[in-house]
Design a protein around this nucleic acid. Structure first.
Lengths: 225, 225
DNA sequence: CCTTTGAATTAGGTTGCCCTAATTGCAATT
DNA sequence: AATTGCAATTAGGGCAACCTAATTCAAAGG
């Protein structure tokens, strides 16, 4: 009966993180979310219960969290704002590719719908962020994903890098230095055993790049058949 | 000894409001600040005491609050961000002059220094906001004000409107409909007695505009000698 | 000078969002 | 089937930022 309320910013941060983690595993574990958000598990659990009360997520005890349709559409609105700001920061303000994700995290909660719409129009209604991730349209529809994780490529296959999910500055810097930007052409040369790295040759680079499996699961590609 | 801390956003909102109210009266009364911020007087007092502990303001009991040098420079940084966003929203996104103040209030706390600097550069280092108020430079220096409140004009004098402080949407809409935008030329035709309105003729408009004294104190002009 | 009145202040909450420490439950391995 | 390890949960706080109600103070008018 208690109508718990909370700030929309906190709600949005949780929904966005859940949406991103759902791309990797579903349902999302409380501990994953806690690590991602940098808060303790009990704190996450408390928030998750409140989100569940608002029908934004469903929580299965001891299993994890998933977004409801409502939660998903709220999350897409956040992702739209976030990715539009990223485009603006890179295309208009010429800020570095690796850094804009963090800047956009601050801006994503602070723009009124009218501002978001005007921004999208100014940018020419882009459909991907600078890291290749799709920008939902104003109605909340997201282009279908057809790319696969680099991790699932087979040795010898070639592919074009499409997008990178879970954009930490440190990861993006690592990838940028090795030419692993959206659009890059690459070939999977080798996969080391025992959860070892994947060796990837990037067009135009002398040395192959070594990518851990964690990273290779977050880099998406279109394989050239 | 207790090192009270709080979110920088709250601090900034308080400092900005104090800075703006100091233009009208100084020191700023607790109740003025409470009305401006939309919170209760005890809440304001509590925050003011903390700000005083951090040497951002000085509080004289039963008198009011003033910014210290430190507080003033923090406030100018907020005003810079705010006014740069306003310029962006009007000049780049073509959003309405009356509405951008409110949008900028949300954005002003959410931009990293690198973003603010890049934005200023993109906009061509403007020195006023769309409402005519000066934008402090990156070092925190503000151009000196030489304009006077319209309220202090004498009947028959002509002047050019320079800026409007304390920008509420409803006030800006009222002024915009009567041509009272920065740059407008006007003549003070009459002043009604008993705190009555000032009658102002605006170049290019048939009917004189009536401005209450509260408003006339917030519209600044350069008198044509 | 005393009274009055409204602002400032004090007293005593509440809520959102976070924490650590302790406990419980699940699932994988012996 | 029992054990063990780790994630999930419960229990019990803390702090920032707000509130209302009650009290105190200062400045102005009788």
């Amino acid at each position: 009966m208690a109508t718990l309320s909370f700030t929309s910013e906190t709600v949005e941060m949780y929904l966005k993180s859940i949406a991103e983690l759902e791309l990797l595993t579903t349902p999302v574990a409380i501990s994953q979310l806690a690590q991602r958000l940098g808060v303790s598990s009990p704190s996450v659990l408390e928030m998750v219960k409140r989100l569940a009360e608002q029908k934004l997520v469903t929580h299965t005890p001891y299993k994890g969290v998933s977004l409801t349709a409502r939660g998903h559409s709220r999350a897409l609105a956040v992702l739209r704002r976030h990715r539009l700001w990223e485009r603006f920061l890179v295309d208009t303000l010429r800020l570095p590719w690796e850094a804009v994700h963090d800047y956009a995290c601050q801006l994503e909660h602070a723009a009124a719908p009218a501002v978001v719409d005007a921004l999208a129009q100014f940018l020419g209604e882009p459909d991907t962020c600078p890291h290749g991730n799709p920008i939902p349209d104003a109605k909340g529809a997201m282009p279908a994903e057809t790319a696969i994780p680099l991790l699932t490529m087979e040795i010898g296959q070639s592919a074009r890098l499409t997008n990178i999910i879970y954009e930490e500055t440190i990861l993006l810097e690592y990838l940028a230095r090795r030419g692993l930007l959206p659009g890059a052409m690459l070939t999977l040369e080798d996969v080391a055993p025992y959860q070892g790295p994947l060796m990837v040759r990037v067009d135009g680079f002398d040395h192959p790049a070594a990518l851990g499996r964690e990273i290779a699961a977050r880099v998406f590609v279109h394989v050239i058949e």
